[in-house]
Design a protein around this nucleic acid. Structure first.
Lengths: 179, 179
DNA sequence: ATATGTGAATAGGTTCACAGCC
DNA sequence: GGCTGTGAACCTATTCACATAT
């Protein structure tokens, strides 16, 4: 399959074809009229825009249940991300799951994050310490945080935070399924 | 603290006060002019609207890394949700973590979901089987699905799906932190 | 004096309709 | 003929400004 239409792409993405075309058009002309989009080229150009054309290093902070599960998750590499290191207040606490990434003590975070030059972090620490850890991350060069703590982080405006709040997702479902 | 202002609430929610007031107003008049919102009453009325004033039972399907982590997560109960049962193709596979919820064989899903009368499900199965499992869930009365598989589920329009896609969250960060 | 509730104004996002190009 | 790219139309969401209530 060499080319693909906006209609086919929209189908799998769950959006309307016009939406998809307009979105792509914000980044330039990706397609060919009468033909569609050249798959390889489209893929490359999207990766370029997202910044995932090279492998992006990421650190994870807070190796509890969720942190450990994310460290084992094999779905990131395919999309161009690699969790290169994890940090925890108790790096030696027994963890049953075998993971490939090293777990360091939180104390080592500043030096190691700087050394690695990592710009993205996954935050899976308890809510009580999330803001404090976020501050440390930002101070040491992190520019994007994927936050799993159920609090609104306060960060400088040049830092990007994406929140994943599982309770809110369920509340949302709960609301919409009500009879 | 008996009452709270839209300004204080907006601060912790990370939105503007007018936004918060307008949103609440869609569900009725919750506050008192000159005073603010009565905390206990507001809390109760929001829970009523969300349908979380009673404990909501939820099932989880797919007890892999992520599923297991979510089963151990203690943040749901506080918000009114309880994962009452989990299902997996291999319920007996060794899992190091001690969890309180029973894990049943997928074969038992239809009968048990019906019996329990559960209306919400968390879907943490591999992408290849996600659609098939979703179909089974819907056939047996599930009306809301929290989907962690990186695919767009096709469901009847009365069924609500919320997607959590970790790779997309990282891609989003990656895009915005680019220099 | 203080803080909500809300119409009006503004901004942002989606869809339509079709011109433009292969 | 087929499919993209895009201005215009439409729709939805946010913010403003202030009337209203305590």
């Amino acid at each position: 399959m060499q080319t693909v239409s906006s209609e086919a792409l929209a189908k799998v993405a769950g959006v309307k074809p016009t939406q998809l075309r307009k979105d792509l058009a914000y980044f330039g002309t990706f397609g060919t009229r009468g033909l569609g989009y050249h798959v390889a080229e489209l893929s490359r150009r999207i990766a370029d825009e997202l910044g995932t054309s090279r492998l992006q290093p990421v650190v994870l902070v807070g190796v509890g249940n969720l942190g450990l599960a994310l460290l084992s998750y094999r779905g990131f590499e395919k999309e161009g991300f690699e969790i290169v290191a994890a940090f925890d207040v108790d790096p030696a606490r027994p963890r049953d799951k075998a993971i490939t990434q090293p777990i360091f003590d939180m104390k080592e975070l500043p030096a190691r994050v700087r050394k690695l030059g990592v710009r993205m972090a996954v935050l899976t620490v308890p809510a009580e310490v999330a803001q404090e850890v976020a501050n440390t991350l930002v101070e040491n060069g992190i520019a994007g945080i994927l936050n799993f703590s159920p609090i609104v982080l306060s960060v400088p405006e040049e830092v990007m935070v994406n929140n994943v709040n599982l309770a809110i997702e369920l509340e949302n479902l709960s609301y919409f399924i009500q009879v």
